[in-house]
Design a binder for these strands. Sequence first.
DNA 1: CCATCTTTGTGCACACGTTCACAAACGCAT
DNA 2: ATGCGTTTGTGAACGTGTGCACAAAGATGG
Lengths: 287, 287
Amino acid sequence: MAIGRSPQSSSQGPDQGASRRPSRARGIPEATVARLPLYLRALTALSERSVPTVSSEELAAAAGVNSAKLRKDFSYLGSYGTRGVGYDVEYLVYQISRELGLTQDWPVVIVGIGNLGHALANYGGFASRGFRVAALLDADPAVVGGSAAGLPVRHMDELEEIVAGQHVSIGVITTPPGAAQQVCDRLVEAGVTSILNFAPTVLSVPDGVDVRKVDLSIELQILAFHEQRKAGEEPDRGDSVLDRAPGPVRAAAAKLRRAAGGGPAKPDSGKGGKPGQEGDLSAVMPA
Amino acid sequence: MAIGRSPQSSSQGPDQGASRRPSRARGIPEATVARLPLYLRALTALSERSVPTVSSEELAAAAGVNSAKLRKDFSYLGSYGTRGVGYDVEYLVYQISRELGLTQDWPVVIVGIGNLGHALANYGGFASRGFRVAALLDADPAVVGGSAAGLPVRHMDELEEIVAGQHVSIGVITTPPGAAQQVCDRLVEAGVTSILNFAPTVLSVPDGVDVRKVDLSIELQILAFHEQRKAGEEPDRGDSVLDRAPGPVRAAAAKLRRAAGGGPAKPDSGKGGKPGQEGDLSAVMPA
DNA sequence: CCATCTTTGTGCACACGTTCACAAACGCAT
DNA sequence: ATGCGTTTGTGAACGTGTGCACAAAGATGG
């Protein structure tokens, strides 16, 4: 079978970020890196209110984390606090920005200008942190030539030129799932080394390329899981008994299922058994 | 100071999901829950191609994870595989769906119908997994009355009635950051117990309410971090020496900074020091 | 200059997550 | 039936992340 490409390099699962490559090159744990933007946001808010210093306790509350965790996180960056006082807001903003690489400009291309692509193009958070939209791209002639957020939508064919010409190293994929891997390959080939993927696809990329995934459907499913648990807390809604059987019983059941020919005996995935769930997504958006 | 509300209950940080409450009520680890949707997607694809069984190795490749991890994940659900053969695709689809609570219908309200709200309303992945959009809500009279994805946009005032009447337990917040906490409070008050938050805000909710956060800006910042690391691998671009100094030196520097009055001595956040980064987001979308 | 109070930075213990590696279980051919 | 090849399920080792609790460091007041 073998469904993915060759390497499953660069992480992608829920353990986002570059996990397999220890990534702790200079020591900053991945979990800490993921929290730095959180701190940065809280600090920026304080900065705007001209608050000069902040304690780990206050900042932790604002960022929604444990204060000990916050202090440990900061300790990886160096000792930027002052005991008995707290942290200098402006200085910390600068240090975190620098650590995250936000003191430089990051041109970004967005590929796939559907509903989500549009939303992202209009996204205020891009420009406000050094991320500049270098170009909007789409393969659909009906979309190319239009505009979003004041930028023209250009054709995929210009991708290579744009990436090379503007030294784009970050690409955002908001295409339908079917096109994602292909777009990804072109991005990588053109020189992009970091990809933010909104398509519900497992992208396969060569070593050295980072992929992060945002998947709305998954988030909702996780919520549903917890929601279901809340609902059926004490009532022991009995699952067909076989399901959690001790082993031999269950194995026999599996054998029976297989023997049945995989046809009519299946549970029908729960509800309205209409097929094509994954294939015919209403275009533009991932499922 | 104290910025957030009262409790910082229910998790929210990068350690998404209900972390602090062990949540492993019946034993399924949070990390596993987060991967189940991944497996489900891969399995659904196989199911459509009428593949009857799949080995852990194959499925793991398709989902982009380690096969041992996949097997351990499945072992939490029970023993649904057959040694020497693999897993029955249809059966596993059913089991995972059931575990995630996707065999039932989950009405969802989306609050804040801006660019992103529109995109979500049109999101194919909603309906395809049992998530039904019960209503689209907005507070802006200019938006109310319009429609998105065939559904009318209704006014916030109808929230309580809709949530109660349709037994909505999941809410999606796509408002500007300033409105997020307020909307969240109303949702919770109305009876919603799971929230998917797209606004760049740390929501504070009472115990028993789950919050998951999707933050585009953070994802990009994490990518930028790794990108920067790739770029400056060997060159020891010397950071003003003070930055990583042994301690006493650094402390003195901090004292000097503070003594300087917090005014002109600050590093200016790196680039064009225009303020209002967090406050004046171009509405509609989070930053 | 000393005492006291506040807050950082971190050692340590523990919980969680990942991966290896292998025995047990199963299908299949003979 | 028996043996062989395959694949699952899991015990155990390891790595990562979290949180407590406290000593050290600095601020502050007398």
